[in-house]
Design a protein around this nucleic acid. Structure first.
Length: 565
RNA sequence: CGGGGUGUGGCGCAGUGGUUAGCGCGCAUGGUUUGGGACCAUGAGGUCGCCGGUUCAAAUCCGGCCACCCCGACCA
């Protein structure tokens, strides 16, 4: 491609809306263009890079026996009602009506349609296992699109679905696909970390995310300093420190005028926050839930949502709290019976806690579970923190941020049962198919590649995803010798199957060199009067500082060697 | 959805009531330049986000709306 003809211009100044690095560089390099919040055009260079990523993903999916197919984005809402995922996705689901006023959705993912399809085409255990995938556009009405390609409302996703006869077979598929994912990230030049994750709206039991560790990442990850435990904060467990053991003492009311928060309470009574019990009120699909947890620990709302099996979870409003007869700031699980109570096991990590008295300006000392109150559910709903104990080995947990570049789910029979996708086993017994679901956002992966591979001058594409392999550049453009030598080399490289971006513009050297750095092709080849004196070219890897002078004779082999290194 | 911010040529910005809305970059034409964002000259390009109001007069003041960005909530 001749740069003089390329659609998409580099900018000297980055558009001001760009915040993170990949967004800035993609805009500045003229590779993407925003159409609306979370909707982007890919210009030729950006699109080539995206296609490279796509092909890596495709190759690895094919390599494990995946069969590529294509399912529609436009789907009947009814299908989503059958699995109740219209509610699970809620407002993130794009819906529309057709001319006959039938309700349709723009698919955010394809479990329903894939299951339906398999239901029609699989009858016997002999048809299994099965790996189906597609690379296609998804729509999700994100509450807040952001970060350029990081979180968008329309995006290309590779989604694969596995179909197996039983749980063990599903686990085998799951493992194989996870390994294929590792190879994908490796080929894209990304060191991805696999972490335990919440299943969210996709459903199912177990799931893992692949994270690129990055400051700019939206996700929060806790990982063990010793063993290989790592989890999304939404999912992470930890071992909390236990309070010093004491003799249980009798209940004792204490006046706490104007004290509302745990922080104030601890200071007022001169006790650590770990000696208090915190009450938090939620509205779960409209119903009030009373949550009690040790004062120093935050409620993990994702865990709570999973426990309650509700679609919508939010903090209760002041009115709702009042209406339920609770006293915000001094609420207590004691004596409550008509409200659902959920407790975190942390309330047993100590004795003689201070809790609310269920009346204003008063708390109660020496509260002990289960001596003084009961709960309906006792289960882990605690947010883990750095420095707490690893749930696997007890060593210290560490915190980092990450970009989610892939997510895999064990779905079990959630979809096959609801959509009646069954097969006959060797004994002629009908059984639900065990499924898995595996997603990679291609555009986000591309953005992650840039987040991971850049410097202050621009992008540093890994060879595998670079739009072009070689950036050929002339200096002294009105020197006819340079021009004709460059034309010859351009043709020669292409004949040898190298992908070449040829900067044939009559720009000053500074402009051309800066653009070469910004655009970030792996190898830069410069022809100038200087290099032609010795019948050679200057060759420089984008990732390295120093250039080398290589004779034109035999340069193709040299370039190929450099690119395959 | 809550909080904050921004909308003025392609990009970055200036312009707090008064000619014909400016600057830098970019773009076009001609010329001089050519190893890290050169220079000169000439020129093209703007319903000042939209609607309404106030005023003799609005980019500027007032009201409403919209869009986009950031933080949070939420979300895969």
């Amino acid at each position: 491609m001749r740069l003089s003809r390329l659609f998409g211009k580099t900018l000297r100044q980055t558009p001001s809306e760009a915040e993170n690095i990949s967004h800035r560089l993609l805009l500045k390099a003229g590779m993407i263009h925003q159409v609306a919040a979370g909707a982007y055009s890919y210009l030729p260079l950006g699109w080539r890079a995206l296609r490279k990523v796509e092909n890596i993903v495709r190759q690895e999916m094919d390599a494990i026996g995946g069969q590529e197919l294509h399912m529609p984005v436009l789907q009947p809402l009814e299908l989503w009602q059958q699995t109740e995922r219209d509610r699970a996705f809620g407002k993130s689901l794009f819906t529309l009506s057709d001319r006959r006023d039938r309700k349709l959705v723009l698919a955010p993912t394809h479990e329903e349609v894939a299951t339906e399809l398999v239901r029609r085409n699989v009858q016997s255990y002999r048809d299994l296992p099965l790996l189906l995938y597609q690379i296609q556009t998804k729509f999700r009405d994100e509450p807040r699109p952001r970060g350029g390609l990081m979180r968008v409302r329309e995006f290309t996703m590779k989604d694969m679905y596995s179909f197996d006869t039983d749980e063990d077979a599903m686990n085998v598929s799951y493992r194989e696909i996870a390994q294929a994912y590792e190879r994908i990230y490796q080929r894209c030049g990304l060191p991805a970390l696999i972490v335990d994750a919440d299943s969210g709206a996709i459903g199912g039991k177990e799931s893992h995310e692949f994270m690129l560790i990055a400051e700019s990442g939206e996700d929060q990850v806790l990982y063990c300093s010793n063993c290989d435990y790592a989890a999304n904060l939404e999912k992470a467990d930890s071992i909390k420190a236990e309070n010093q053991e004491e003799e249980m003492l009798p209940l004792e009311e204490v006046a706490t005028p104007g004290i509302i928060t745990i922080e104030d309470l601890a200071r007022f009574l001169d006790i650590p926050e770990t000696k208090t019990l915190k009450a938090v009120f939620y509205a779960a699909d409209g119903g009030i839930v009373f949550v009690v947890i040790r004062g120093d620990i935050e409620v993990n709302e994702v865990k709570l949502k999973n426990v309650l099996k509700c679609h919508e979870l939010r903090l209760a409003t002041e009115e709702e709290v009042k209406e339920a007869g609770l006293v915000a700031g001094s609420a207590s699980p004691m004596g409550l019976t008509d409200i659902r109570r959920v407790a975190d096991p942390s309330i047993t990590l100590g004795t003689n806690f201070v809790a609310g008295a269920n009346k204003p300006d008063a708390h109660v000392k020496n509260v002990n579970y289960p001596r003084d109150f009961e709960v309906d559910v006792m289960t882990d709903i605690a947010t883990a923190k750095a420095d707490e104990g690893c749930p696997t080995c007890g060593s210290k947990l560490l915190f980092t941020r990450g970009i989610e570049v892939g997510h895999v789910f064990k779905l079990g029979t959630f979809f096959s049962e609801r959509l009646r996708a069954t097969f006959l086993d060797p004994d002629g017994v009908g059984r639900p198919i065990f499924m898995g679901s595996y997603g990679i956002g291609i555009g986000r992966l591309l953005a992650a590649v840039i987040e991971q591979n850049h410097d202050d001058k621009g992008i540093i594409w890994p060879v595998s995803v670079a739009p072009y392999q070689v950036h050929l550049c002339t200096i002294s453009t009105d020197d006819s010798e340079v021009a004709s030598a460059a034309d010859r080399l351009y043709l020669q490289l292409q004949e040898e199957d190298l992908e070449v971006l040829f900067d044939d513009r009559t720009e000053s050297p500074g402009v051309k060199l800066n653009d070469a750095d910004l655009l970030g092709m792996p190898v830069r080849v410069i022809l100038s009067p200087r290099t032609l004196k010795s019948q050679s070219a200057e060759v420089k890897r984008r990732s390295e500082k120093d250039a080398m002078i290589i004779p034109l004779d035999g340069i193709v082999e040299k370039l190929k060697a450099i690119l395959s290194r």
